[in-house]
Design a binder for these strands. Structure first.
Lengths: 269, 269
DNA sequence: AAGTGGTCTAGACCACTCT
DNA sequence: GAGTGGTCTAGACCACTTG
């Protein structure tokens, strides 16, 4: 007679879970209302957050993971499916499954929503115009959930087709970005988020943005070569890493005279 | 000896497909690079577009669909999975799988991205201030891909907490909205998109929006009780139905002094 | 109790990639 | 050819809903 695994029963399930403990610390706090494939997903995420598999590297083959987690191929694939859908892993048929990187051409524009009026996107030219380490302001503390800590604050001006279009005022917690300097920011070869990943091991998974229309004050008018009072698109962004941990807070001001912010909505709210 | 279905071989596959032809016309034009579950998904979509199963109704049980399409439960579920992920179907454990509706409370805010500064959303009060049938302008023709046709144009003013905040200038093709009148727009009980669905059989599946900051002209200043030149968020939206067919083109102007436009990005660009 | 969707299994064969 | 992910099967048991 066959003995079936009873995935919805906590007792039978936790015994399965225990076998996986050697991989990473077992954390009971997040083990509520779980199913086998969710549990597998959580393990993979934890391994990623711990740097067990690094961006660009392949993770073990599906069959290997089935043995490692003691689940069937169907269950394993359902877990991986979700991670692929969330852009955390990338599958290449015949090659393997890889941890997503941010420095690839195609990923370049993932979180860069500014386009020309015809919908095409161009590479921005970038200039760092300010850099400082200071105590976090109340707004930054709130957004980054890092009370009482210090932060790095720096400002980039992005130009498209030779004209300045965007001013980014960026704040990151110093505890996560140990060793960040002006030189590091100037010498990076790729995008800012690829620098975060390669240099500091921080992967940006998700962003939330709030948009408003404002009038240019003296500073923005100067930086963007506009008249004071000209309409600007203000974008306030919080960028999140694997555990929904906020790691960057930025305010962008965009001259939308010749460019647009592109948004889409299809899947759930 | 067992005979396996060879899903990737066209000859074996098309014989399977033929069995389904009684349901709807077989269309060879879209049968390229297909897999079994994609084919099943396409059949379901076609049935939905044909009105075979209507919004709010349950579609046949998974086991029934397995027999109908002659596929296994795993394949059937993979097809339905994608339709659920795209918000076209909704599954309720123990009850059935239903065609998505737009008039439910929870769906109310799906395409309504304007929120208070604290992130909460409120029901807008709505006033119809203009309605006309006219020849489509060049911009509307381009966005709606309906050359030479007539359109309905109407304008709504949306108020939040008693103050006017948004002006929506909306254009829809008359061929799809036969019988649209001012009275129909005034007497609708739910959202505009639920009216589209219930009254005209048009389901909005996806929207694309482009955002800019502009200065209020005399019309918007008047409607939104602002000074001329005040910064406004301009949102240009195209709304799409099942076959990626554009069915609505609207330009919104939003006073973001006390409200924000919320955007998110996580899944693929 | 009957019917529905949700999860899981164990294994098959296919298409693709790399060596 | 060996190894990878991609698709598909046939059936099991579970949790939930409704009569």
């Amino acid at each position: 007679m066959r003995i079936f695994c009873t995935p919805h029963s906590r007792s039978a399930h936790s015994s399965t879970s225990r076998q996986l403990t050697n991989m990473l610390e077992f954390d009971h706090s997040t083990t509520v209302g779980t199913t086998l494939y969710k549990e597998v997903k959580r393990r993979v995420l934890r391994a990623l957050a711990a740097g067990e598999w690094k961006p660009g590297e392949a993770i073990p083959a599906e069959k290997k993971l089935c043995e490692l987690f003691s689940v069937s191929i169907g269950t394993l694939r359902k877990a991986i499916d979700e991670l692929v859908a969330e852009n955390i892993l990338i599958r290449h048929q015949g090659r393997g499954t890889f941890v997503s990187m941010h420095n690839r051409e195609q990923q370049m524009f993932r979180f860069f929503n500014v386009a020309n009026h015809d919908g095409t996107k161009s590479y921005p030219h970038l200039e760092l115009i300010a850099f400082a380490k200071k105590k976090a302001g109340t707004l930054a503390v709130q957004k980054l959930r890092q009370p009482g800590s210090k932060v790095y604050e720096f400002t980039n001006v992005l130009s498209l087709q030779g004209a300045p279009v965007i001013v980014d005022d960026i704040t990151v917690p110093d505890l996560l970005f140990v060793g960040l300097t002006e030189a590091v920011l100037r010498n990076r070869p790729n995008t800012l988020y690829s620098l975060y990943q390669v240099r500091f091991g921080i992967s940006i998974i998700r962003i939330e943005e709030r948009l408003r229309a404002v009038s240019a004050d003296a500073r923005y008018a100067d930086l963007l070569h506009l008249a004071i009072g000209a309409p600007l698109l203000e974008v306030r962004r919080v960028a999140y890493s694997y555990d929904d941990q906020p790691v960057e807070w930025r305010i962008s001001h965009i001259n939308t005279e010749h460019h647009e912010y592109m948004a889409q909505a299809a899947h759930y709210s």
